[in-house]
């Protein structure tokens, strides 16, 4: 057969495209449920990890079931309303009655979206844990934001200086110091800065809620920190007391 004829070329390409489309549509249809379940489990696992739970998820025999169980055990889905918008707020209650607030983060990295969850102690200023994830940051560089090494730096940092919202800054050159700075990733400055911007804007959405509760929590919190004192919470409380 002459494969160079116009008609042959048109028919051939049509058949090829239809065949490929059918294969891909079929694959997508068959795999969709599993993929969506994976994404849902992943989201729940990130929320759990942001409060330093689900540590041995990788060791669990049946990871999805394990995650579901842990999630329903500790996490309550909630939300706050700001203007006419609703923002999700997850509340974690541990066995020892410690309460943590988890905020969802989303922003734009260098190549695609980045997102994460960050949890706060009940003073609503001290970070209890954080996790970050990304769609397509450069592996070995920007993609390092999803490592424990990077997110671990946020633990015990504070987002308020007195009553001013300062968020947490990501600084270059390994010079992070104080309660509001963490080190950027070398070679991944744009993604690191994107994390900083994401924190600022997403926590900013909750600012009224945070501020209201920050002030309210000051008095009783002083007692609770006496039981379990941590340097950074003490600092905030001391500043607040002097102001008052």
């Amino acid at each position: 057969m002459d494969t160079n004829k116009n008609l042959y070329t048109i028919v051939y390409s049509t058949i090829l495209v239809v065949v490929v489309a059918v294969i891909l549509a079929l694959a997508s249809y068959l795999l969709k449920d599993r993929q969506q379940r994976n994404v849902a489990i992943e989201t729940k696992m990130m929320i759990l990890k942001s409060v330093n739970l689900a540590k041995d998820a990788s060791k669990a025999d049946d990871k999805p079931t394990y995650i579901e169980q842990e999630y329903s055990k500790y996490i309550t889905d909630s939300s706050i309303t700001e203007g006419n918008k609703t923002f999700p707020l997850y509340i974690c209650r541990l066995e020892n009655q410690d309460k943590y607030y988890i905020v969802k983060l989303h922003g734009a990295g260098l190549w695609g979206p980045i997102w994460g969850y960050i949890s706060f102690k009940s003073d609503l200023s001290t970070i209890y844990g954080a996790v970050f994830a990304h769609k397509g940051e450069t592996p070995g560089l920007g993609a390092e934001i999803s490592t424990d090494h990077f997110s671990g730096q946020f633990i015990d940092k504070t987002i308020f200086e007195g009553e001013n919202f300062v968020s947490v800054l990501v600084v270059k050159g390994g010079g992070a110091k104080g309660n509001h700075e963490v080190d950027a990733i070398s070679g991944g400055t744009i993604t690191s800065k994107a994390v900083e911007a994401m924190l600022k804007s997403c926590i900013g959405d909750y600012l009224n809620f945070f501020k209201a509760n920050l002030n309210k929590a000051t008095a009783p919190l002083y007692d609770s920190t006496m039981v379990n004192p941590s340097d950074s919470t003490m600092l905030i409380n001391q500043i607040d007391t002097t102001k008052n």
């Binding site: 051939y12 390409s13 090829l16 490929v20 294969i23 694959a27």
Partner: peptide, 30 residues
């Protein structure tokens, strides 16, 4: 032997792209 010579690069790309998408989908699911 069936590929029309004039569109062979496109045919190759379609096949490669299909494989890559399949690999991606299967990885995402399993």
């Amino acid at each position: 032997n069936t590929i029309p010579n004039r569109i062979r690069i496109i045919v190759q790309l379609v096949v490669v792209a299909m494989l890559v998408i399949l690999v991606d989908q299967i990885l995402q699911a399993y």
